[in-house]
Structure formats: structure tokens, C-alpha cells
Computed example of a mutant assay.
Amino acid sequence: MDQRFTLRFTATKEGQLLREALSEWRISKRALTAIKFEGGLLTVNGLERNVRHPLQIGDIVEVKFPPEEKSEGLVVEYGLLRIIYEDEAILVLDKPAHQSTIPSREHPTQSIANNVCGYFEQQGLASTVHVVTRLDRDTSGLLCIAKHAHIHHLTGLAQRGGEISREYEAIVHGHVVLDKQSIIAPIGRKETSIIEREVREDGQFAHTDVKVLSRFNIQGEPMSHVRLKLYTGRTHQIRVHMVHLGHSLVGDELYGGSRMYINRQALHCVSLQMLHPLSGEYLQFSSPLMDDMQRLLNN
């Protein structure tokens, strides 16, 4: 059975070249190169054609993308995945804390990507892992993975167009004064660190909305439970913006938080909203806070 990812389209313009139609259907030039040289196939009404073929209205165009190979360093593993949603194009997962999204030098195995590779292999899917929305190792909650390079291309276009929306909840030190506010401050790498980021003039544009859900105290220490909406996806964006505001995340030692109450940054992706990359259907997913964060709120 042919396991290659396949899409079908119906031509709507008389005499349009296949190349032009494929561009309108958002098939990238990179994908066309891979189809041509790496084992893909273009057919019109069941017959193989090249991109210069003129179409007639009603022609059925089939695009078979070549099989994908995983990166050499990506070890196939078969760990637990908390699957929230799955179809032929995307996989939405609920990631626990203390698990990397992708392997790193410090944590080369047991990442989400390792386990997804094993899951795809079990399914007989000729694909590799394409992370759409990535989470830091100690951040929990929703993340999205594209099952194919073309789907990753489409979700990348959607992200740049602001069509993928994520909201987080965090617990931070101190009582945040304003009930609602926007933080628009550029983020760049800290010169003295390869890991840390900071707000700096020469950084990349970054925008986070902050809404206070509650203010409380634990053993006399003030804390705030906040909801955050990301408009950009900079590395450590929420953590850096909240430090900039004067409120480190509880448990975030890298940025000045205390681990007296929780052994990771208290940050969870609670909501993911997007248009399906193929059907255009509106999708909305939610995830409740993990027990460690909930215990802080119940304290």
C-alpha cells in the first residue's frame, strides 16, 4: 500500500498551467522540488504530468509527496503520548512538565519528538516530526505537531498570519497591579548567556497580553494567577516579559523565581485555537492545569 501523503484538487481554470494551480493551492516550490527528485508524483486524471501541463476545468489533480526521513540524531522511542486530537494532517498533544519537545544535548532521548517518531512508525506513516507550537521542557500543556512537511508549511503561513492562537496560565511572584495590560517589548539573547533571553532594543518584536485571574498569598508571600495570550512566539517570551514587568514565574529559577513551592516554572498552555490547514475548519482545544499548579492555587 502506498503510504505517501496525498492531496487531491479539482482544476477550476481552463488552460491554467499545473504549476500555477499548485501555487494557488499553496504547494511550495521546495515541495515541488522534493516531489520531482525525491520520489513524489504529480498526476492529472490518473496520468503522470509535469508542471507545464495545461489544465482543463474539472481535471482531478493528485499530488503525492515523497516519503519523509527523520533526522539522523532522532532516536525512535515508544513512550506515552497524551493525544487530544488527531487526523491525517495534525496531532495535538497535552505535554507534561519535565519533558522536552525535541531532543537536546542535555536530554537526547524521551522527548515528545522521539515518542512521536515511534508512534508514526507504528502507524506505518512515511513521515517525521514537524513541531508547529513548541513548549519549553518544564512548561506543560497543549502543543501541535504537523504530520507532513507540507502541513508544516501551511501552519507556518498560518502562524505568520496570526491565525494560530495560544493562551497560557501562569503563577507569578507578587501581586500584578493592573487587571489587564499588553506587554510589547523586543526580546533578544542575553550577551552573557547562550540560554537566557532579555528585553533589549535590538531584539525581535514580541507582544504578550496579560490578564489577572486572581491575587493570593502563600505563607505571606504575594502571588498572582495570570492568563497570557501570545501574539508572537519568541523563545522564553512569557518568562522574559513577566520578569520585565517585575513578576518572575514561580519556580522559574533561570529568571529569578523560587522553587520553594513548585519544581518548575508554573506555566501551562491552556488553549490552542487554529484553522485546520486543509479544511479551514475552526479548531479549539483546551487543557486543565496540572496538579502541581492547581495545588498552588488551592493553597
Rank of each mutant, 00 (worst) to 15 (best):
D2W: 02
L7K: 10
R8T: 12
F9K: 06
A11R: 00
T12S: 12
L17H: 07
L17I: 08
L22H: 02
S23N: 02
E24I: 08
K29T: 07
R30K: 13
A34G: 05
F37N: 15
E38Q: 15
G40H: 07
L42H: 05
T43G: 02
T43W: 01
G46W: 05
V51S: 07
R52V: 03
H53E: 04
L55C: 03
L55A: 02
I57Y: 00
I60C: 11
I60N: 06
V61W: 01
E62F: 01
E62I: 02
P67V: 02
P67L: 05
E68K: 10
E69V: 03
E69C: 01
E69F: 09
G79W: 08
G79C: 08
L80P: 13
E86Y: 06
D94K: 04
S100K: 07
I102C: 07
E106N: 07
H107L: 04
T109V: 15
Q110N: 15
A113T: 03
N115Y: 03
Q122T: 10
Q123E: 14
A126G: 07
A126F: 11
T128I: 06
H130D: 03
V131Y: 05
R134D: 05
R134L: 00
D136P: 10
D138W: 00
I145M: 08
I145L: 13
H148W: 15
H150V: 01
L154M: 11
T155W: 13
G161Q: 14
G162A: 09
H173V: 09
L178N: 12
S182C: 11
I183S: 13
G188D: 07
G188N: 08
R189I: 02
T192H: 12
R197K: 15
Q204D: 11
F205L: 13
V212C: 08
L213E: 15
S214R: 14
F216D: 00
I218T: 10
I218M: 04
Q219E: 15
E221Y: 06
M223V: 02
M223Q: 00
L228P: 08
L228R: 06
Y231P: 01
H236Q: 03
I238M: 08
H244G: 11
L245D: 01
S248D: 10
L249R: 08
V250I: 13
V250W: 12
D252Y: 11
D252C: 09
E253F: 01
L254C: 02
S258Y: 06
Y261K: 13
Y261N: 05
A266L: 13
L267H: 04
C269Y: 04
S271Q: 06
L278A: 08
L278E: 09
S279P: 11
Y282W: 09
L283R: 15
L289W: 05
D291V: 01
M293V: 14
M293F: 12
Q294M: 14
R295W: 03
